[in-house]
Design a protein around this nucleic acid. Structure first.
Length: 489
RNA sequence: GGCGCGUUCGUCUAGUGGCUUAGGACGCCGCCCUCUCAAGGCGGAGAUCACGGGUUCGAAUCCCGUACGCGCUACCA
């Protein structure tokens, strides 16, 4: 490389969404770039016209930005090496393919799909170890080629792989890897529609965009010899390679849609925080060598290194993601949580309720240690927003005794005396009633909680009362006495 | 089938020849705290380091083989 600045790229093909495996690849590229004061580039590998998906690029960009992985160069923001969409670089690939042909490193192939198919079948029947193109068109004479070209016979350009060569390269994660060129097919470089295949476009762009480190999934390891051959054929310096271990389903197969969500968008929509997803995915195949597991993005940048990436695939375990989500949630300031909660409320049945921020802040403080998702501030404690419409049956059976209504009535009349009560005022009032009745506070608290929230679990009793407010508390006690009675009968 | 890569508690992992009776985290179980649930604290169960051979005074760590898993084997990426 002419300059030593680190330049890496995330080069997804636009399939319609960002795969979490892709997110991790993007993240590692991003971390490596930031750590080394380098550039992180987004390049769209849209060379397969059959797989074109409307809006896919926009979705990809949106998901990347949601995750906080801002790139320095990319299709929507440009950069000194654009365009960053491969479909807009066709003439470039053509030029380099021609160069390869003129140097005998590639050749035109006019074979029909039918012949290729027949060849494959024949090779299979003969139980040949590997199916490969037979280089038939390599031996065409110049005049034949000219004639075919003039006739406009459909053609592709193939890489001319020399037999009996040892192809070796170093990988930062896998160390030394070797292939026998006899196992490498004469890969198609330019398809009959004029579009390049991944292999050509990838190598040409990585060179032109001065990519120093190719960090990608392990599924590319097997085609790296083709890429190495191309770099060598062009006389270009090879980038450093780093092939990342795969993300796996619980059954250890490659992470797939069939066994759960794979799109970053799915996790976002389920309520996962970007910080948690990033933290989680960073730890799938990498660790700093210490016991730290909770990371913010800037800490990851500081600690990341490719040398500490594992070789083996990692199962995507929701339970740990959930834990991390709760952890990240808990460490957010209440004011930030308020914004997130209001956004969540606007999407819920509560959207027209106009709940004051002060109340939401109280709910956040009371529930923060008890939630995993922002939406739990709503659905795990609906009683803050609505009077209970039913009462948890088990708790009724356990806590609702003959004398409960009368106890609650006594509590109610004590509460009625309070003026703008604080949580301490409620506590004192309840203690007083407990003393008078000569029973433990718990004997009052459990039925009261049930009466007021319909549930047996939740934040501290007096926090709960304070947040609900005196009038609401009194009303709920009253209707509980009415309703729970009728349930029991 | 061929080629390549991999294999430490259920899961994510630490470990780079002696400090290891293999450490941490999630999850699970128990105890403490306590008005409940969480959070927090403490403790427990859980891995003969895939298996078999070597090398070495000594191996999860080095070498070889086997098994299993995964990836690639397209005019997909």
């Amino acid at each position: 490389m002419t300059n030593s600045q680190v330049r890496v790229r995330f080069a997804p093909s636009p399939t319609g969404y960002l795969h979490v495996g892709g997110l991790r690849t993007a993240l590692y590229n991003f971390l490596f770039a930031k750590k080394n004061n380098g550039k992180f580039i987004l390049r769209i590998e849209d060379t397969d016209r059959n797989r074109y998906v409307e809006g896919a690029v926009e979705n990809l960009i949106k998901a990347l930005k949601w995750a906080g992985l801002q790139y320095d160069e990319g299709p929507d923001i440009g950069g000194p090496f654009g365009p960053y969409m491969q479909s807009q670089r066709l003439d470039i690939y053509k030029k380099y393919a021609d160069e390869l042909i003129s140097r005998g490193k590639a050749y035109y192939c006019f074979c029909t799909p039918e012949r290729l198919e027949a060849l494959r079948e024949e090779q299979q029947k003969m139980k040949l170890p590997q199916a490969k193109y037979d280089k038939h068109c390599l031996h065409l004479s110049n005049s034949q080629i000219e004639e075919n070209l003039a006739k406009g016979i459909p053609k592709v350009v193939r890489l001319n792989v020399e037999p009996d060569q040892k192809i070796e390269f170093d990988d930062i994660i896998r160390e030394h890897v070797e292939f026998d060129s006899n196992n490498v097919d004469d890969q198609v470089l330019i398809k009959s529609d004029g579009y390049p295949t991944y292999h050509l476009a990838n190598v040409v762009d990585d060179h032109l965009m001065q990519i120093t480190h190719v960090i990608r999934g392990e599924e590319w390891l097997s085609s790296t010899p083709k890429h190495v051959l191309l770099y060598d054929a062009f006389g270009w310096e090879r980038p450093k390679f780093a092939h990342l271990p795969l993300l796996l389903n619980p059954d250890r197969s490659k992470l797939s849609k069939r066994q759960g969500d794979v799109a970053v968008e799915d996790y976002r929509d389920k309520g996962y925080l970007r910080e948690a997803l990033i933290n989680f995915v960073a730890l799938l195949g990498w660790n700093a060598g210490d016991d730290k597991e909770f990371y913010y993005l800037n800490e990851l940048i500081e600690k990341f290194s490719l040398e500490r990436v594992n070789k083996a695939g990692a199962v995507f375990d929701l339970q740990k993601l959930n834990w991390l989500n709760a952890e990240h949630l808990r460490r957010k300031p209440d004011t930030e949580l308020l914004l997130l909660l209001k956004e969540e409320i606007s999407k819920s049945e509560l959207k027209d309720k106009n709940i004051p921020d002060e109340k939401l802040l109280l709910i956040i403080a009371a529930m923060k240690e008890r939630v995993t998702f922002v939406k739990d501030f709503i659905f795990n404690c609906m009683y803050f927003y609505k009077s209970p419409s039913e009462y948890e049956q088990k708790a009724v059976e356990k806590n609702w005794r003959e004398d409960t209504p009368q106890h609650l009535l006594k509590l109610k009349s004590e509460f009625e005396k309070l003026v703008n009560p604080t949580k301490e005022d409620y506590e004192h009032a309840l203690s007083k009633v407990a003393d008078e009745l000569n029973i433990g506070k718990g004997k009052l608290i459990h039925p009261l909680r049930l009466a007021v929230s319909g549930q047996s679990t939740g934040p501290g009793m007096f926090d709960l009362l304070f947040i609900l407010g005196k009038d609401e508390v009194l009303n709920r006690i009253e209707s509980a006495i009415k309703n729970i009675k009728s349930i029991k009968v």
